[in-house]
Nucleic acid binder design. Sequence first.
RNA 1: GCUCUCGUAGUUCAAUGGAUAGAACAAGACUCUUCUAAGGUCUUGAUGUAGGUUCGAUUCCUACCGAGGGCACCA
Length: 559
Amino acid sequence: MNIREQITEKLAAVLARLGVESPKVSLDLTADLSHGDYATSVSLAYAKEFNMAPRALAEKIVEMMGSIDGVSKIDIAGPGFINLSVAPGLFWQSLESGRTEPDMWGGNASLKGTEIMLEYTSPNLFKPLHIGNLVGNVIGESISRLFEFSAATVHRINYPSDIGLTVAKGVWGLKKTGGDPDDIRALGDAYRTGNDAYENDPAAKEEINAINKKLYEGTDAELNDLRERGTRTSRARLAEICKTLGTSFDTEIFESEAGPVGKEIVLSHVADGIFEVSDGATVFKGESVGLHTRVFLNSAGLPTYEAKDIGNFELKTRTYPNFDRSYVVTGVEQQEYFKVIIAAIRAVFSGLDGKVLGHIATGFLTLTTGKMSSRKGNVLTGEDLLADMRAAAEERAAESRADNMDVLSEQIAVAALKFQILRGGAGKNIVFDRERALSFEGDSGPYLQYTHARTCAIIEKAQVVGIVSKFDTTATASDLVRITNRFADIVVRAQEELEPHLVATYLIQLAAAFNSWYAQEQILDGTEKAAHKVAIVDIVRQTLKNGLWLLGIPAPEKM
RNA sequence: GCUCUCGUAGUUCAAUGGAUAGAACAAGACUCUUCUAAGGUCUUGAUGUAGGUUCGAUUCCUACCGAGGGCACCA
């Protein structure tokens, strides 16, 4: 039992003795370190129930709690908060455990034995990676890692669209341009050609619709071949980008597979009334559960996106029948859509009681200025954005100490991009400021990387000088040490709330505290205190490293 | 029309119903003969409006104003 649980339990016991039935105990990390490490407002919350002044109740609670092992100080402050300070010895003990098992530092086992399916990224093949897909990838990957850091088994699932209008536009474009379907550039040009034609040329629109139909039927060998090859090319490109971004999927489910499966399931649940036929279409009436009606099979009998998602779910559960939770990460615009889909899934599939089915919404990414540096002058793609970051990073990387400039500039670019996406709440829209992201200053991914690289440099130098790092367990705990030790608490909350930004803001706080300390303190000062200070640097280094990993941001050792 | 998000310094973001609403950027002033200045130190500056619930509201409720999304055969 950790200190937090001990305090919570003791508080609950005291309240119970005072006569509160099933007391609610809040125990928070203090916002201000001068208030101690943990604070509770129970005395304010229960003051009225006891008809006592909050401070008087606080005094009574504190008196009844007596002393707690590992708590060095209990204060009553302000209107009646009870502030608790953790004994320094406990910090050193905790931080030391982080140095003994560095990869586990900050992690927990709260989801041990839990199997989680997480679907994210889900791009349209034949089309360059959209910014929305990129945002989904970044957030999905980070949430995956948060789960893994709580000892869950995570299955990363990609659900690419390999059939439908987008593909038809690309295939039409390939025929028109005569482009090589094995060449990613030709494929991009073909898609753009098809997309423009679809919007501006009515005749072409009809041809594309016809191609779409034929592709669904799968009867035209030439079209099938173009689709096949284009899909392969596009997937290869996607794999490269995912590698850069640090994602590796366990399973891919294609829209073309999900369609027929979903259609069959929908048809088999018309008789039992889950789906009904309305105006020739097969629909799910969401109104009964406060939602809206959606079409699952259109009047031509073809599966819509809705039915495909039913099929997708079926295919996922065939692969991972023992899952406990299933999440899909997509843009907020699909929030209402997924409420209906989840309701339909719960109606259709049995055995889902007690299982979590969730939709994680990500905000839109827009740019501050109207000027986008799109390569082709129209829409800024996820790839363009990454390339932009990369170009700027190369300039900085050239002045660095890194051994491999190419690797470093890519790492910096990924950090800059991901941090911008992960610094705010997951469902909030992201206003991407290119100038700021490219400056690599202030609160940013590269700032965190730089701080990490700085800690690495100190550790390396300490080794050269021959210092054996070791905590002085009699020392008092500085703010930096106390902040560092909060890592595990932050991780738990971020995982429970599915909010990577809690980790991001925490790391900024940690890095700022470290850099401030670093500026005042000579670490390798030649005294016996150096061993202690190096140990602190080492655990800060590990915290930054593990925290960056949670965000999916690489942590280079030299910059 | 119905419905879901969201309105916090000039800008971009924080604040699990709690203490003095935190950062960063921008502006200005300092700071590298000392372990990485992508750093550090200091100064200025904000809760859309009106009510309500509460010991306490940026947070919860209602209305209004403003921005964006969704609402049947597209994905």
